[in-house]
Nucleic acid binder design. Structure first.
Lengths: 239, 239
DNA sequence: CGCGAATCCTGAAGCAGATTCATGACATGG
DNA sequence: CCATGTCATGAATCTGCTTCAGGATTCGCG
């Protein structure tokens, strides 16, 4: 009998439903106003049922993040498959990251909250494990690009491994996301578009690594052109 | 009469007391277990009194962060006053940042939570304003270093202003703090000491900017020596 | 098809903990 | 010494997450 499997599928579907509704409610009323009982109401299930899926509200948020990560991974994988010099691909990772954040405006907010100590400790170990597993490919993609670069002679590692190199760009992207989402900071610095700044600074960083071919970050036109090319060739979208 | 002023001072003292206790409780039991009623108990004031100072629990946390920032600023100002080439001073900002985080282990956790949308929205506008004001000097110090560099001919800005340049290092530091504090990530990447990696990558970034004199980040001994010198000359501490 | 067992769903009750506010204590100043 | 305003108090309120005892549903089997 496929009975058991059908059941399994039903449960999985229901979980997706809960997450869909949570996502919608967050978009509508903000993370702050997300209430378990509302999710239950909207889904026409009882609160107790919700709690059969998620150990806590935070657990649900972690599940939501985990789902988002799949989109993130698929963007990165497109970059990995892109036929381009290693340096352009590394840069495209930054572009992918920013595109992802733009596509999922709530993602960063949820992440920031879910990864804070307070929330993290209220999540279930099982879901944390899944979360890490789902995230793994992100790192793999980046590391493979670094490895390619080394093999192609575009980059000399100098006693660092590929993981360590990848942490540099990662941290910069992460930091920019933080700045971009911190209310008031950009206004103070009169930065119109934080991500165009991030792109430039990523190029400076890659230059610092001596990642060939070197690129002139002051050449705005060239950067713009590259980004447009990435959007077109990697993410098939205009602008 | 100094009556009014005395009263004012008493109130300010009490606020400090509340924050001291909150800080101690957080260190002891973790941010997660911080309870307003415990703060009240320990301070031998009523809960209501606590609420005459802070609009909410989150407001108290923001106040606590604001207090921490003063230490942060004083570290940065020591760097600003350091007699050293602009590039070394810029690097020392990164060192100061990491030292600050090390000194105040709870700071980052509180920040992460307090700046998340959920918590931020529960803070009072007045305190947010103060928070920004207190933070301002941080940026000023960094920007002044960039300006010095430009004036000294150590750095060419290429259509960027000093603020924009400073965002690059800022974002990298911020990103590294995030990574350093995200449970599980470093283990996955088998990074022993994230901050030694950050120091190296900051040097790569500064090289990328062409910030003179260029420095070889692969030279671990030289970096170590520089950091020791900074710890000694700027923060008067060994290691 | 009907039965008992197992599983699942339910939502009202429980609970934790942040926040409020009616009350009374205290200080001021006339 | 009283009238007045100010402040501290903590029990009561409120919000919203979480639990759990009971009822419904499904399943396997004779």
């Amino acid at each position: 009998m496929g009975t058991r499997e059908r059941r399994q599928r039903e449960i999985a579907d229901r979980e997706e439903l809960f997450l869909d509704i949570a996502q919608e409610l967050i978009r509508q009323d903000g993370l702050l106003n997300l209430q378990m009982s509302r999710i239950a109401d909207k889904s026409e299930y009882a609160v107790g049922t919700l709690y059969q899926h998620f150990a806590s509200k935070e657990d649900l948020l972690l599940a939501l993040m985990t789902r988002y990560v799949k989109d993130h991974v698929s963007l990165f994988q497109r970059v990995a498959a892109w036929k381009a010099p290693s340096r352009d691909r590394m840069f495209a990772i930054g572009v992918a990251d920013s595109r992802f954040i733009r596509q999922c405006p709530d993602f960063f907010r949820v992440t920031q909250y879910a990864l804070s100590e307070v929330a993290w400790n209220a999540t279930s170990p099982a879901r944390r494990k899944i979360f890490f597993e789902v995230n793994d490919p992100l790192a793999e993609v980046v590391i493979s690009i670094v490895d390619d670069a080394r093999r192609a002679g575009d980059l000399t590692l100098h006693e660092q491994n590929a993981q360590e190199i990848s942490m540099a760009t990662w941290s910069m992207c992460l930091g920019y996301h933080n700045l971009a989402h911190a209310e008031g900071v950009l206004e103070d610095f009169s930065v119109r578009d934080p991500y165009s700044l991030m792109f430039r600074h990523l190029q400076y960083l890659l230059n610092g690594f001596g990642w060939k071919p070197l690129f002139d970050p002051a050449d705005h036109t060239a950067i713009e052109a590259l980004i447009q090319r990435i959007d077109k060739e990697v993410f098939d979208e205009e602008n």
